[in-house]
Structure formats: structure tokens, C-alpha cells
Computed example of a mutant assay.
Amino acid sequence: MSDSPLAVTIAGLTFKNPVIPASGTFGYGLEFLPFFDLSRLGGFCTKGLSPSPLKGNPPPRIVETPAGMLNAIGLQNVGVRAFVAEKLPHLRAYDTHVIANVFGFSVEDFLEVVAALNDAEGVAAYELNISCPNVKEGGTQFGNDPVQAARVTEAVKRLARRPVIVKLSPNAPSIVEVARAVEQAGADAVSLINTFVGLAIDVHTHRPRLGFMTGGLSGPAIRPLAVRMVYEVSQAVRIPRIGMGGIATWMDALEFILAGATAVQIGTINYTEPQAALQIIDGLGAYCRERATTIAALVGAFRP
């Protein structure tokens, strides 16, 4: 473990700080090079990677809502092989953990992506997106059912040569039960929460404002719900938790850490403030110095 007060360990990986831009909001990392050095980050999650390229959903894909947004991007991506050949070589120049977000419409899809990544240099861990709410199949099937979630987790763990993080859905009947199921199936950590399913209607046309109709609600509006779910899951499982959902400031991030998250992911705020991750890192650092404490000591320090 590093001597830095911000350093944390998840699944045997030491992160220089607990701040990780979230999948789907940070591209492949390279898009943010004009704004800051990626080496400042503890790590980041790539866009979701599938066996073959996907074009995603028809536009409109994003709708602004009070204190957040709805998105229905539809997991557009270049495909895992293009990522390994065209994106990953550039990322190796930066001292940060690259977490490959993996998704599929079947267990076999997940395994195909992980197999393509296993031999790729520069990937630190896999994050299984079993919970995307804005595709027609796949995400709901796995993320809402503890049995299905455990099945895909166990299959990937047998194949994976790197730690496996499972991303949980707030739309599951019981996110705690899904967390327990994937822990028992061998997951090294969980990340939570993904977006809530929402709908926005154009009152002039009486039509949905998104081309896909429904989308995933993210942003500050969901933060109290996310903090509550991180706390509940933290009481139920022993594996590390990575918290996310509406984080915009270091104080928001600290809420998740106090609730039981070892690290946090930063999502929607990246669209409006590309340097938000650095501001959160700096804020957490100042807090730890003022209190003569560490992030590791603050994990789960909430006192009900």
C-alpha cells in the first residue's frame, strides 16, 4: 500500500487515489487528454466493450432533466478488438489503472470480450456491466436476477486473468441479493449503482424525448438513493464496493466512502466539468490532511 493518505486497495490493486471516472462518461480515456494528465487518476473505466462494434441507439440519445440527465446511448463502441489494437497502446503511457468495462447479450458474449482482453497489456481489471437499462436485451436479464448475475460472474471468473468487478443495477428487486449472489460466485468487487430507468415525454408532440423511449437517469438527483444502496450493500458483503451516482464534489464522494465505498466513480459531471475528477481528488486530499486521516480509515466510518 502506498504511503499516500488517498491510496486504497481493491482486489489486490493499489489505487493512488479513490477517484475513477465511470464507464460511458469518459470515452476511452484518450478523449480527456486535452484537459489533464490521466496519470493523476486512480483509474478509469472504459466505454463498454462488446465482441463486435455497435452503433448504439437512434437519436435523440440524451435529455437534460432537473438535477441530472436521461441517456439512451445504447452502448455504442468500437468493439473489443479495435480497442485493444487502436486505443489501449496509447493508454499504456499513463500511470493509472485501466478498467475495461465489459458487456454482452449472452454469457458467451462476456466470455468472448474477456478472452480478447486477457492477453492485452495494460488492462488492470474487468468491470462487468450486467445492468445497463437502455438496451433491448442483456442488461436487465443479468442485472435484475441474482441467479443470472451469479451465472455470468462465475463464468467470467473461470476465464479472467484479472480482477472482476460486477456493476450492479438499482432497478433490481433487491440489489443486496444480487450483490450477495455475485460475491458467492467469486466477484472480487462490486460497483454501484448504474442508472435508474426513466421516461421523459415531449408535451408538445406527446412523444418520448429519447429515440429509444426510456433511458438511464443519472446525476445529482439520484445521489441519496445511491448512497443508501451503497450503505446497504456494504452491510451485506465483504468484497470491496465502488460507489457512484450523482457525485459532483469531493463532499459527495466522501458520502459514498463513509457509507462503505472503498473508491468512487465519477460520471455525469464529466460532461459539464471535464476536470471534476481532479477537483475531487484535491478536495479529498485536503480533507485528509486537515483531519490527519486516510481514505482507507474513512471507508465505512458512517455512524447511524
Rank of each mutant, 00 (worst) to 15 (best):
S2I: 07
S4Y: 02
V8I: 14
I10Q: 05
I10A: 04
I10P: 01
A11M: 11
F15N: 04
P21H: 02
P21A: 00
A22P: 06
G24S: 00
F32M: 13
L33M: 01
F35A: 06
C45Q: 02
T46I: 06
G48D: 03
P51S: 13
S52E: 12
G56M: 04
N57K: 05
P59Y: 06
P66T: 08
A67K: 08
L70P: 00
L70W: 03
L70D: 10
N71V: 13
G74K: 10
N77R: 02
K87G: 00
L88A: 08
H90W: 00
R92V: 00
Y94F: 14
T96S: 13
N101V: 06
V102H: 03
V102Y: 03
F103Q: 06
S106D: 12
S106Q: 13
V107K: 15
E112V: 07
V113A: 09
A125V: 12
A125G: 14
E127R: 04
K136Q: 14
E137P: 07
T140N: 15
Q141W: 11
P146V: 05
V147A: 15
V147G: 04
Q148T: 09
R151G: 09
V152M: 01
V152G: 10
T153S: 09
T153R: 14
K157N: 06
K157W: 04
V166A: 13
P170R: 07
P170E: 00
P170V: 13
N171E: 14
S174D: 15
I175K: 01
E177L: 05
V178D: 00
I193T: 05
F196E: 05
A200C: 13
D202I: 03
G211H: 00
T214M: 11
L217P: 08
S218C: 03
P224C: 12
P224I: 01
V230T: 15
Y231R: 15
E232K: 07
V233I: 08
V233F: 10
Q235F: 03
V237F: 07
R238S: 15
I239F: 05
P240Q: 08
G245L: 00
D252T: 07
E255N: 13
G260C: 03
G260V: 06
A261I: 10
T262Q: 13
V264M: 02
Y271D: 01
T272F: 14
Q275F: 01
L278W: 01
L278F: 04
I281D: 00
I281W: 05
L284W: 14
R289P: 01
R291D: 10
T293A: 04
T294I: 14
A301M: 01
P304W: 01
